[in-house]
């Protein structure tokens, strides 16, 4: 591990990013630097402050339960790296991979 602040290998696994050894080292030190940078937030007292997930204050934005148009199957599959019989084809799934 390049840094004791962040287990880059573990985080990369969660993010599904293959990293080379040198990337683990490089990102490790860069991310540790970034974490030090964001640590300045500790200086801000937020004890009585609510969390903002969204600046828009609207509520209950919904759509009516009405059927609209779909993509044609050709359009749906047009970008597929691999398709077969109208399905998207993927390499074998390891059971309980997640």
């Amino acid at each position: 591990m390049a840094s004791d602040r962040i287990d880059v290998r573990h985080v990369a696994k969660l993010a599904r990013l293959a990293l080379t050894e040198s990337e683990v080292l490089r990102y490790g030190s860069q991310l540790a630097g970034l974490l030090t940078f964001v640590d300045e937030l500790r200086g801000l007292d937020t004890e009585h402050v609510g969390a903002t997930a969204q600046v828009v204050e609207s509520r209950n934005v919904t759509r009516p339960d009405v059927v609209g148009p779909c993509l044609s199957r050709e359009d749906a599959l047009a970008g597929a790296p691999q398709a077969q019989n109208g399905f998207f084809r993927v390499p074998k799934i390891i059971a309980a991979a997640e």
Binding site: A15, P91, K92, A97
Partner: peptide, 26 residues
């Protein structure tokens, strides 16, 4: 996360889906 090589965009093949994800995204 959706850039995973399944529905569109780049895919780099792997022995299984997990490997395909990691290589594609890398």
């Amino acid at each position: 996360a959706r850039f995973d090589g399944v529905r569109y965009g780049l895919r780099v093949d792997g022995a299984d889906v997990g490997e395909m994800y990691e290589k594609t995204r890398a």
